[in-house]
Design a protein around this nucleic acid. Structure first.
Lengths: 222, 222
DNA sequence: GTCTATATTAAGATAGAC
DNA sequence: GTCTATCTTAATATAGAC
């Protein structure tokens, strides 16, 4: 029922907000900043969204749905063994697109408490997805670990997944996204490596070398 | 030259600020909050510190010096092998005391850019300390890893060290400090475990069981 | 050193014309 | 649907009395 232009401005606001939140940080991006960036008036922005909180809620919806679908995939249908590294890349990528959510998470969840439960649900889903990946690899005899090791190992992987982008940003500010993400996958790979069987190990050494080559040039200047 | 009372109020402000920053978050703690908590007037607070930024700068000085000394220890003098887990506990503990710094780090460093370089220096020091620990363990033949694995492994340990407290807080809000820290050490232990030699492994399985017992009760209700 | 009272600022938000 | 102008609020900060 809305006119085409109406829909467009609304979407442009979301798009621009996401851009600025990711680049400049959400706390320091004001509604006026967003309006300025788009060359519209603050009043216009408030016509489409009754406040900054509504914009954030809407962006969180997108994040929750997008990442939710990705994380559910290995729960509904185990991945092929050879797809696992690529899968982790995809997960990182989706997180990267909404990286502002992670940057000042504690304060974000305090200011928008309704997001807390939902963010935790996403975290649990991450854990379930990682565990599913691990179990697939175990079933296919790619990896093996004692039962009582798995829980803590998966926690370490989830923590890495959750904070890798923050860690990289803390050290290097903004590096090329593909580089950051590749190295994130690489770090996960290193975490798994000791659990690989002898046969698998050789194959993964090769994959790892490829990753290292991709990462090397920039990592040197760290 | 200052009267005794003068010193006291100044210190009380720092102490109360640290308390509130850690409990309520730094961004949501105002100068008025701090003054109220202490039953002094905001004007009085501003007599001692020209602004909130000065309070934060001073707290950061304390953090930098305290943690700096701890992190330098294994660089100046290798630790005894059996002291390493305890050492990691001490590092976590000092970070815990200034945990507000980590909670919304990105925004903190944007608002106080002069802290950025210094925070990164602390991070590098963490890395150097972890590497030193690793090298001691290697020298004593407690662990062994291929040379090309060590860099990435140490990165994973540093990331865990840096974000464990955030991760735990995200999942469980405020648990008992000793529990949180013990589990942090445990997670580091799990990360190292695959690199332990057969002889070492048995001893560390025992240590690990003790840690698991400490952590268990609360971890169940996760 | 400490208080009360008040000024300043910046972000969030609304009203009403077009 | 968009603009300009204005209001509100909360946090930071200062002035001046005691």
């Amino acid at each position: 029922m809305r006119s085409e232009l109406a829909v467009k401005t609304r979407d442009r606001i979301l798009h621009t907000s996401l851009l600025l939140f990711n680049e400049e940080g959400e706390p320091s991006t004001t509604t006026v900043d967003i309006a300025n960036e788009m060359d519209i008036s603050p009043g216009n922005l408030y016509y489409h969204f009754r406040g900054k909180d509504i914009i954030i809620a809407e962006l969180f919806n997108q994040f929750e749905q997008g990442l939710g679908e990705i994380l559910n995939a290995p729960l509904e249908q185990p991945l092929n063994v050879e797809d696992n590294w690529f899968y982790l890349y995809v997960v990182f990528e989706e997180m990267y697109n909404y990286r502002f959510l992670y940057r000042n998470l504690s304060d974000l969840l305090r200011r928008y408490p309704e997001l807390k439960t939902r963010f935790r649900r996403v975290l649990k889903l991450k854990r379930a997805a990682i565990l599913a990946v691990w179990e697939t690899l175990t079933r296919e005899a790619v990896v093996s670990a004692a039962d009582n090791e798995v829980e803590a190992l998966v926690d370490n992987m989830v923590l890495l997944l959750n904070y890798w982008l923050n860690y990289d940003h803390l050290r290097h500010d903004s590096r090329a996204p593909a580089l950051v993400i590749h190295q994130g996958v690489y770090q996960l790979m290193v975490m798994i490596a000791p659990y690989l069987g002898e046969q698998q190990r050789e194959f993964y050494e090769q994959v790892r070398e490829i990753y290292r080559t991709i990462i090397k040039p920039a990592a040197e200047s760290a």
